Simulated scan of single mutants.
Amino acid sequence: MAEKKEQEKPLAHRIDIDRNESFAVEFMKPRHRNCVKCCGCTTAILLILVTTVIILMVTIFHLKDPVLIFNMSKIEGLDVLKEAKAPSGLNLRSEAEVSIKNPNVVSFKFNNTTTIVYYDGFVIGEAVNPSGQAKARRTLRMNVLMYIMVDKILAVPRLRDDLVAKTLPFSTYTRITGKVKLANVIQKRFVVTLNCTVDVSVSGQTIEDKNCKTQYSY
């Protein structure tokens, strides 16, 4: 009888081990499920955030090109060109307006704006506007005062023919550089150039016709 009892002890021990292992497995199952659920929720949240950022970048936060507009109103004193001998060193005043339209949801900060006036390929005037910024989805208008050099105009060979036609074909070149920055994460640099040809009436000293072309570089 003693031998039978001794043989039963290892069997009881094995049953205890099996019960412990079964209990451990049952205990790990809920933890495994919770881990899977947690990982699934985290992945879903990350996907939603990434999708939202992509949608915002493509729609609301999509950085668009600023629009540059140049309007020259008149040039005062053109009658002096009809005189047999115009005063040396005389400068004519020209008023113009440079507009910067910013279609973005953040401000467009730009450097100095340069405008050059040409007559038959010769530089006859120049103006520089200070740096600034165009607010989000707003149009910034800047008044430009340029001085046209009479000596430079008189040196152009075609001037006599244009005076007979009572129209001076000028051209202007305006260049602006700036950047748009979104939350210090998305940043884009713009270089906008605007080339215009304008026909100036000698008698009326006003702009009769204008044609402009815009170019962008980044």
Rank of each mutant, 00 (worst) to 15 (best):
R19Q: 10
L140H: 03
V200C: 06
T113M: 12
F61H: 07
Q215S: 04
L56C: 01
S107N: 08
P169W: 05
C38E: 07
I100H: 02
K179R: 15
V106R: 11
A183R: 01
C212G: 11
I17T: 10
D16P: 00
T167K: 09
L63Y: 08
L194D: 11
L56K: 02
L47W: 09
S88G: 10
S94P: 04
S88R: 14
N129A: 09
M146T: 11
R137M: 08
L92C: 08
V53R: 13
V105W: 05
N129H: 07
V50M: 14
Y119V: 10
E208C: 07
R138N: 05
K213Q: 13
E83Y: 02
I55S: 04
V67R: 15
K9H: 11
T197R: 09
K181H: 12
G132L: 07
K74F: 14
T59D: 05
A165E: 04
N129W: 04
F70C: 03
L78W: 03
S22I: 11
T115Y: 00
V192S: 03
Y218T: 12
A134M: 03
D209L: 02
G89N: 08
K9Q: 15
T167G: 07
M72E: 03
I186P: 02
P103Q: 00
F70L: 14
L154A: 15
E8L: 11
N91C: 03
I186R: 01
T197H: 10
I45E: 05
L81P: 01
V123F: 00
I116G: 00
R160A: 15
V58R: 11
S88M: 13
N34V: 13
F23H: 10
V164K: 13
S88F: 13
K179C: 12
I124P: 01
R160P: 13
T43S: 14
M28T: 10
V180M: 09
E3H: 06
H32L: 15
L56A: 00
T193P: 07
D120M: 12
S131T: 01
E8Q: 09
V53L: 12
Q7C: 08
Q215A: 04
P103I: 00
V185R: 14
V50Y: 10
V150G: 07
D120I: 10
I124S: 01
K181E: 15
L92T: 08
E26S: 04
T174P: 00
Y173A: 09
E95D: 12
T172D: 06
M57P: 01
I75E: 01
I55P: 01
T174C: 02
K210T: 00
N184P: 09
S22R: 09
L163Q: 02
R158F: 06
T115H: 00
E26Q: 03
K135G: 05
I148N: 08
V185K: 12
F170N: 02
D79E: 07
I15P: 06
A86D: 08
K213Y: 13
P169F: 05
F108M: 06
L68H: 06
G77V: 02
D161L: 03
A44P: 00
